[in-house]
């Protein structure tokens, strides 16, 4: 299978950043706050044989307790707001919150609906955003790289503690 050359480049840069900031291991907990599943598909693609994000030291975990980064998708429905907040509280420091997709950033096409709260930042502090509806896996990786580049050192003591 022929891979995009830029994938390798982004990947190894990403790996360096993960090494620098997270001792070579970035655990991601993905939280779906009422998404339309488009973003989920793209995130799921990250772990497939093509993108294989695991080789860069990034893996998905089953519990926010284990996570370094929360990838939040969806516009945050009212019913999910409390759960999202709890997930945020359940995640130990240091942690990063990334809103993935336009829905998660400001509600996207659902913006203004009575059923949603228009974005993750309404509920928990968001560190970074990845735009797109949905963002492609490559975009996600690029954005992650940008995020980690931006984070000079492990984002400790951020948010409330």
């Amino acid at each position: 299978m022929q891979q995009l050359p830029e994938l390798e480049v982004i990947g190894s840069a990403l790996q360096d950043n993960v090494r620098r900031l997270f001792k070579g291991s970035l655990a991601i907990r993905q939280i779906d706050t009422g998404s339309d599943n488009a973003t989920e598909q793209e995130l799921a693609a990250l772990t497939n044989a093509y993108y294989d994000i695991e080789r860069f030291g990034i893996h998905f975990v089953p519990s926010p307790r284990h996570a370094d980064m929360l990838l939040v998708t969806g516009p945050v429905t009212r019913n999910m707001a409390e759960a999202l907040k709890r997930a945020y509280d359940a995640t130990p420091h240091p942690k990063l919150v990334v809103a993935v997709g336009d829905d998660a950033i400001d509600g996207g096409i659902y913006k203004g609906s009575y059923a949603v709260l228009d974005g993750v930042s309404q509920v928990i502090p968001v560190d970074y955003q990845i735009a797109g509806d949905p963002p492609s896996p490559l975009v996600i990786m690029q954005s992650l790289l940008a995020i980690l580049d931006g984070a000079k050192k492990a984002p400790k003591q951020k948010g409330q503690s």
């Binding site: 519990s63 307790r65 409390e82 759960a83 999202l84 709890r86 509280d89 359940a90 420091h93």
Partner: peptide, 13 residues
């Protein structure tokens, strides 16, 4: 390291 206490994680329920 700081140890804090919080809710039990149960999927946000």
């Amino acid at each position: 390291q700081r140890v804090t206490t919080g809710r039990t994680w149960d999927g946000g329920t």
